[in-house]
């Protein structure tokens, strides 16, 4: 049986208690997206401020939810801040691949395409895979980021 220590790592609890980039950004210029987990009621708001070169100058997250969704949002914001949209998308792909329960089965296929990324703090969330119902909590902020980046790419 997967033990809770695989889930509630110290780094995760630190991000939960001291979330990075928590708050709001003015829209516009920032883009805002809201994500919901209809099963459990978690809500995440992501603001991204993207400059003319396509770099995420600033990011903020809000909303409420469990330690997994909140810490993942905090880590996500730290991981993509200052990165280009392409880099942020690659990090998101890498994170979502890590969260995929089918990952082992797809490993061989994915090996070529998988971006070579050091997940840093993010790898602390790897244990979530052992708790399948919590995967949705971990990926909520990332899907919301994709939504915000998608909105940013769209001409307003």
């Amino acid at each position: 049986m997967a033990g809770l220590e695989d889930l509630y790592k110290e780094i995760i609890l630190d991000h939960y208690r001291n979330p990075r980039n928590k708050g709001e950004l003015e829209t516009p210029p920032a883009h805002k997206a809201e994500g919901f987990n209809p099963l459990c009621g978690d809500e995440i708001v992501v603001y991204v401020d993207i400059d003319d070169d396509g770099v995420i100058q600033d990011i903020a997250t809000g909303g409420q939810g469990c330690s997994i969704s909140q810490s993942s949002a905090s880590m996500m914001s730290a991981a993509v801040k200052g990165k280009s949209i392409e880099e942020a998308l690659a990090i998101t792909d890498g994170f979502k691949a890590m969260m995929s329960i089918h990952e082992s089965g797809l490993e061989s296929e994915k090996a070529d395409t998988k971006p070579d990324l050091s997940m840093g703090d993010l790898s602390a969330l790897k244990g979530v895979v052992k708790f399948p119902v919590r995967i949705k909590c971990a990926v909520l902020s990332w899907n919301t980021l994709l939504q915000a980046l998608g909105d940013a790419a769209r001409p307003s």
């Binding site: 809770l4 509630y8 978690d42 469990c66 330690s67 997994i68 919590r134 909590c137």
Partner: peptide, 21 residues
Amino acid sequence: IHPHDMSQVLDQRNVCIRAGH
């Protein structure tokens, strides 16, 4: 402690409760 985290902790002891809205 968020309700989800609480129900996860309780599940370690086979205590089944519901967390959510």
